[in-house]
Each structure stands twice: as structure tokens, then as C-alpha cells.
Simulated assay, not measured.
Amino acid sequence: MFKRIVIPTDGSDITAKAVDTAIALAKFHGAKLYAVSVKEPFPYSAVSEMQPTPPQEFFDAQERIASGRVKAVVAAAEAAGVPCEGHTIEALHAWEAIIEHADRNQADLVVMASHGRRGFQALLLGSETQKVLTHCTVPVLVVR
């Protein structure tokens, strides 16, 4: 049923559960995984020309962190015998990058974690998962 599954990762423990679920689903369906980690853009400041971190150092650190997260997913998938591609994407909004990545790879499922915030805290913080659920055109499996 599923042939292309996108699995976003932020390196958190709850994301590890979603990765395990995505790998199991991919193995069962003979699907390919597309792991993605979203990098933050450099926080350019219009007020000051003084930046605490030079832009290239910031970009390098973001890429190193995101690549590490993706490599962990690719390694886990390969250990389970599941084909997996890893990608890092820079975006202001992670939810938009996840949806675009799913569209670009013609995914038929997105498996992602939810941190389970509720009530006022969820309202204030928002939820990348909720935004993906709201705007994505392919099915989204939420793992808690």
C-alpha cells in the first residue's frame, strides 16, 4: 500500500519512536524511506551588524547537526534492510519543508512524532505536527 514514506527527524526521543514505526511500516510494505531534518535559517538581524556567530559557522553547525540526525535514521533503516535516502533542508517553518519534501518525493505517507502538548501550552507553542496534519495532502501517521 505505501511505497514512499517521509520521516522527519529532530533527534528527540519521541522522534526515535516515529523512526522505529516508519521503519517497521516500510519493511512491511516494501517501501522506501525519505528521512528529512530541517535546519534553521541564519537569524539575520536588521538592527545590528554584530552577530554572535559568523554566518558560515552557523550554517556549518546546522548542517552537521541535521546530517547527524538523518544519518542515524538511514543507518537504522539500512540495518533493518529498508532502503532510505536522507536529506537536510533549510526552512523558516519546518512544517512547510516537511510537506514540500513529501510532495517532491511523491510520498504516500508521512510518519512523524507528536510531543503531546495540550491545552494552552499547545496553543501558545503551536505544533509542527498539527500544521502538517492540517496542510498535507497525503496521509500523516502521528506517533506518540
Results as ranks from 00 to 15, higher is better:
D10T: 12
V70T: 07
L124D: 06
G81T: 13
Q51G: 01
L92M: 14
Q62K: 11
T137N: 02
L141W: 00
V6K: 01
V38F: 06
H93G: 05
L124C: 13
G86S: 07
F59S: 12
S127I: 07
E78Q: 12
L133H: 00
V140E: 04
Y34I: 11
D108A: 04
A76R: 12
K3C: 03
H101R: 12
E40M: 13
A61K: 14
A102T: 02
G11W: 02
S127P: 07
G81F: 00
L25I: 15
A77K: 11
S45D: 09
G126T: 07
G119H: 06
H87Y: 09
G81C: 12
A77G: 09
E128F: 02
F120T: 15
A102R: 03
F120Q: 00
A72Y: 00
G116K: 09
Y44F: 14
V143Q: 05
Q130R: 06
S48K: 11
D60W: 02
A66P: 11
A94C: 08
I98L: 01
T53Q: 08
D13W: 00
I14N: 13
A46K: 13
L141N: 01
V142A: 08
G126E: 01
F28K: 14
G86W: 12
R117M: 09
G68W: 10
E85D: 15
Q106K: 11
D13Y: 08
V140Q: 05
A18Y: 02
Y34D: 05
V74R: 10
T137M: 03
T129G: 09
H101S: 14
K71Y: 04
V73M: 11
E85H: 13
K32N: 09
A75L: 06
S12A: 13
Q51E: 08
Y34P: 04
T15G: 15
V132F: 03
Q56G: 02
H29P: 00
I99Q: 04
A18G: 15
E49A: 14
L141H: 02
V142T: 14
L25Q: 06
P8I: 10
A46G: 13
A80M: 07
V138K: 00
A46H: 06
L125M: 13
P43F: 08
T88F: 04
Q130G: 15
T53G: 06
A107I: 03
N105K: 05
P43I: 12
Q130V: 14
F42I: 08
L109E: 04
Q106E: 08
G30W: 01
I23W: 10
A16T: 15
H87I: 12
Q130M: 11
L141D: 04
E63S: 15
E78T: 13
I14E: 07
V110R: 04
H135I: 10
P139C: 03
V110K: 08
Y44A: 10
P41N: 00
R104Y: 04
D108Q: 09
I23A: 02
V6G: 01
V143A: 08
A66G: 10
S67V: 14
A72V: 09
M1F: 12
M1C: 05
A94L: 00
T9Y: 07
V19S: 06
S45G: 07
T88L: 04
M1N: 10
D10G: 13
E96F: 01
I5R: 06
Y34E: 05
L123V: 14
T134F: 10
V140H: 00
E96A: 15
P54I: 13
W95Y: 15
G81N: 02
K39Y: 08
V38Q: 04
S127H: 04
A79V: 04
G30K: 07
